[in-house]
Design a protein around this nucleic acid. Structure first.
Lengths: 110, 110
DNA sequence: CGGGTATACATAATTTTGTTATGTATTGGT
DNA sequence: ACCAATACATAACAAAATTATGTATACCCG
């Protein structure tokens, strides 16, 4: 009965959205921002995030830059041009989905 | 790029919600009602629905009755008492999740 | 009357995707 | 010295959906 499983399927568009808004982000930063924005409701696990980011890179949705912060490495992700287009589409779909969810959860509005 | 994959993880609460609203439903009816309510946006596949219903029955969330319609059989599902309680919890979680999604997709409201 | 579509169930093989666990390594506070 | 936070990564596993398939009745159309 773990509520966190709800976002299965939505994780990808969520990440894409954050990247679109913030331009350039690294993985850990994404997990923290999601936690912050949702007041701790959504917690993205690293085991879900990193493989997803790698997949998006393979697909040409994002591109990466490494940056050294002191002796520590950060891997920054940015949406490619194609990735931005895909994000727009994904956002439309996500919004439609949210409306659909709403219609089901809130049938009185029908 | 199938938008339908978005509801992965939300299917169970969606079904529970419909059962709570409509009292007694059969599988095919559920697929049709979801399609109708969401104007064709959400299409639940049978391969996802039936195993889910069976799981819910095993877990004591729903109980079933067979009914003969002509020569055809319908299997009706109803929430058990425990199932109704779980549905309330699931709805709270789903609403929280929807709010979280909103915060991410609609950051301007922050 | 034959064929396609809708109704209505079910399940198996496969794929996708997330959880859990683990590993490495730096940084900073106490 | 030690623990928590930062920051990456990946492997083993589990859950849950897709896709494909199967069975069977009912109904409409040409």
């Amino acid at each position: 009965m773990n509520k966190s499983t709800l976002y299965k399927g939505c994780l990808e568009p969520i990440i894409m959205r954050l990247l679109k808004d913030n331009g350039r982000m690294y993985g850990y930063q994404i997990t923290q921002m999601v936690k912050e924005i949702t007041k701790g409701e959504l917690q993205i696990t690293e085991g879900a995030l990193y493989p997803l980011l790698h997949r998006l890179e393979e697909q040409g949705v994002v591109e990466t830059e490494m940056e050294n912060i002191g002796n520590r490495i950060r891997k920054y992700y940015t949406l490619t041009k194609a990735g931005k287009k895909q994000t727009s589409v994904a956002m439309d779909e996500l919004k439609m989905f949210m409306q659909s969810l709403n219609l089901i959860v809130n049938p009185k509005l029908a």
